[in-house]
Design a protein around this nucleic acid. Structure first.
Length: 547
RNA sequence: GUCCCCGUAGCUCAGUUGGAUAGAGCGAUAGCCUCCUAAGCUGUAGGCCACAGGUUCGAUUCCUGUCGGGGACACCA
């Protein structure tokens, strides 16, 4: 049962019969302080002018109407005109049969209305292994996709592979140089190339695969190095993501954009609309006309395309695929890129259809001491090392417990600890505890009660009610997380639910209660476990049955 | 210099399209296992929501400015 919607329905009906129209800024939500009831509404204050009455009088009128509804225990007026509604316990108990019948679908909704959303995340250049910063973006994108799908959006998850351009040539050259050096050729390190140890490993693998490579023409050799290196690194990235339980539906190649001539089409389109021009031998996009502070180059005077050029074509391609909304997850260091990308989207006629999430830096610590993030192979800088060190569950939960626009301190020692500084175990433990009770109950041949009024009525303590109300709030939480692109709301919800469960567990012994009460409580715990599992699943974190 | 993000308890952070007496964990401190997992529970202490104005019935939330921390400002990717 969705309490907010139930009360809103009652209020709308009351307003209708009184001939008042629904105020835009009406908010119906649980109040911060429980003593103000279950649900609080501010409509009376907003209606005062329209009703030509004092806010408190309007509230009194509405309270009288609400009090007629069967599930309303009380409706009171407080403060300047707040309407505080308390619902009957029977209302809250109805959430249990709902959870049982919906199972893993519980919490889903239709607010997305099937609208097509694309979420693009990670999209790291295949020039080296993923690092911990990529991990944060990966966890965020993956979890956000799950949440959006749960909220009824039609979600596609995508990884954009920058497999064209300078960086890729640099990768080929880097491997080629290392390969020659390993074979004793006196080749100096170029000014600009990749220095990580993994390049030497790749060089050795290339040599093993193409023993005659040293005798081939340089250009061909570099190509072989590039090709092999990119594929090998991409395979490694896919393996890392998969072990981090991060999925993508589409791996989109930048090269394919160029091959299909989409960049040229985009250029022509912009030129037709008077938004592009030639100057100093380069081709420019007039982004200043669309809110950017500087025009941007699409094709350099050297003839090379900038990344921006293919990014515009890429986004055009996204919208042509039918997405109503595109979410891009980028590192915060790309924030300067946002205005020009928004300008491009506007030029494409899709203003408002791009949402960019900037993920702030991850500060890697160990025992409170900062670990320098050098480009050389350090101790724990790669995502792989982090997964091996602390596990995917702990790492994901940590990433997803912060707003994306806050910097994140990721302390390896802390994340391994089993304390509330590391809440993943707190939530998982709540689930494991319930599983343990279930096992013990099964040994005593005790099964959960059927979700029938007689059994439900036994769940009558303050702690029962608190759990029921929390369960009923799950769907709202998912919707809020989807609406604001904020998986961390789910993380906080789960910590609160776990806390409520732990308190319940301590106060109300399940197995020693008399048989009907015990079975009713088992039913309740079953439902809590279900919601914990559904919530953890949205974060991509496992729900272990024992710890 | 211009722009973006952040500034809430000693520490790490929440605070739901502006709501009532600002929350949680950690740390500190005092308690709770003959009983379903103590990876847990309960109590206490701890705050000028960086600062100053503005908008309004009402601001931690929105606007402007100041201070402090971080980042971005290429015909780089």
């Amino acid at each position: 049962m969705n309490a907010n919607r139930y009360v809103e329905g009652l209020l709308r009906a009351a307003l209708d019969t009184r001939g008042w129209s629904w105020p835009d800024k009406a908010v119906i939500e649980p109040p911060k302080d429980r003593k103000f009831g279950d649900i609080s509404a501010n409509v009376a204050m907003l209606l005062a002018a329209q009703a030509k009455k004092a806010p408190r009088q309007v509230a009194e009128d509405l309270a009288a109407d609400l009090a007629q509804a069967p599930d309303v225990a009380s409706a009171e007026v407080a403060g300047p005109g707040f309407l505080n509604v308390t619902l009957a316990p029977g209302f809250w108990r109805r959430v249990l049969p709902e959870i049982l019948s919906q199972g893993e679908a519980f919490g889903s909704s239709t607010v997305g209305a099937g609208r097509k959303v694309q979420v693009e995340y990670v999209s790291a250049n295949p020039t080296g292994p993923l690092h911990i910063g990529h991990g944060r973006g990966a966890a965020l994108g993956d979890s956000l996709s799950r949440i959006l799908a749960k909220a009824g959006f039609d979600v596609e998850r995508e990884y954009y592979i920058n497999d064209a351009g300078r960086q890729m040539r640099l990768l080929g050259t880097s491997i080629w140089v290392r390969l020659q050096q390993a074979q004793g050729r006196p080749v100096p390190d170029p000014e600009d190339f990749y220095r990580g140890d993994y390049i030497r490993d790749l060089a050795a693998e290339v040599l093993a695969k193409y023993p005659d490579i040293l005798s081939r023409p340089e250009a061909e050799a570099v190509d072989l190095c590039y090709e092999y290196g990119m594929n090998a690194i991409m395979d490694g990235i896919k393996k890392d993501l998969s072990d981090f339980r991060v999925g993508h539906d589409v791996w989109f190649s930048e090269k394919s954009l160029l091959a299909e001539g989409l960049v040229d089409k985009t250029f022509a389109f912009l030129k037709d609309r008077g938004l592009a021009f030639e100057q100093d031998g380069a081709f420019w996009f007039k982004t200043t006309e669309l809110g950017d502070d500087k025009d941007r180059v699409l094709r350099k005077s050297s003839g090379e395309l900038t990344y921006f050029a293919s990014d515009i074509a890429y986004h055009d391609h996204k919208y042509r695929r039918g997405f109503d909304m595109v979410v891009d997850i980028w590192g915060a260091d790309h924030h300067g890129y946002v205005p020009r990308m928004q300008a491009a989207v506007e030029a494409l006629g899709r203003k408002g259809c791009l949402h960019v999430i900037l993920v702030q830096l991850v500060n890697l610590l160990k025992g409170g001491e900062q670990i320098a993030m050098s480009t050389r192979a350090g101790q724990f800088e790669t995502l792989r090392d982090v997964i091996d060190e602390v596990g995917a569950d702990a790492a994901r939960f940590m990433f997803l417990s912060r707003k994306s626009d806050s910097k994140l301190d990721f302390d390896l020692d802390l994340v391994k600890q089993k304390t509330m500084d590391n809440p993943v175990y707190y939530v998982q433990y709540a689930f494991a505890r319930i599983c343990s009770v279930r096992r013990k109950a099964a040994e005593q041949d005790l099964a959960p009660a059927e979700a029938e009024p007689a059994a439900l009525a036994l769940l009558d303590t303050a702690e029962d009610l608190e759990l029921l109300q929390h369960l009923a709030r799950f769907q709202d939480t998912v919707e809020a997380a989807a609406r604001s692109y904020s998986p961390h709301l789910v993380s906080y919800y789960l910590q609160e639910l776990a806390s409520t469960l732990h308190k319940y567990y301590t106060l109300h012994h399940v197995l020693s209660a008399d048989r009907p009460l015990c079975r009713a409580r088992l039913l309740l715990l079953d439902c809590v476990a279900r919601v914990l599992r559904n919530g953890l699943d949205l974060l991509g974190v496992s729900a272990p049955e024992s710890m």
